[in-house]
Simulated scan of single mutants.
Amino acid sequence: MKQTRKTTAKTEILDLIIRSEIALSHSEIQLSLDGLCNRVTIYRVLDRLIEEDLIHKVVNIDGGVKYASCHSCSTTHNHNHVHFSCQKCKSVTCIEGVEPFFELPKKYKVSDVNFTVSGICPQCC
């Protein structure tokens, strides 16, 4: 894991993502930061946080990208879990503790998994 310097933007973005119950898009993060930094800085910070394994990227059913933090990481850190995308409120939630299972033919090496389930969340039922 590569260590980098802490900046106000990095600290605020990480805190925002950690506090959020749902995955956040770049535009949601930018809106919440209320002018703290520009959109390019936000992208750079998000890339750095992913590289440092502090957050993970979620590709939604519609192809949109959101960012989330593990809230229950134990000694075995794993971002390969199920994500739930609500068709009604458009929220994306990490469903930790549920890892997708799949089997690929031999000679395929998986480096990352993005498993999204779509439906209606408990708040919208």
Rank of each mutant, 00 (worst) to 15 (best):
F102N: 06
S69A: 08
L49G: 01
I61P: 02
T7R: 10
H77P: 09
S111T: 07
L36P: 07
C73K: 03
G64K: 14
V110A: 03
M1T: 15
H71W: 02
T4F: 11
D62T: 03
S111W: 01
E51N: 07
A9H: 00
L31D: 07
D15E: 13
K66Y: 12
K88L: 13
S32K: 06
T8Q: 09
F101Y: 14
K107R: 13
M1P: 14
K10L: 07
V113E: 00
V65A: 10
R19W: 06
K2V: 15
M1H: 14
V65D: 04
E96N: 05
F102R: 04
G64P: 07
L16S: 04
K10C: 09
S69M: 01
S118H: 05
N80D: 15
S74P: 08
G63L: 03
K106S: 15
Q123P: 10
L33V: 06
E99W: 11
H56W: 10
V59F: 05
K107P: 07
I61T: 06
E96F: 02
T7Q: 12
T4S: 10
T116F: 04
K57G: 00
T8M: 11
I61N: 03
V92M: 02
E21A: 11
V98F: 15
F115V: 11
A23T: 02
H26Y: 03
L33S: 05
N114P: 00
R19L: 13
E103T: 14
E12V: 12
L33N: 00
G64H: 12
V40F: 11
I95M: 10
G97M: 09
H71G: 07
E96D: 07
E99G: 14
E51K: 04
L49M: 02
H77E: 14
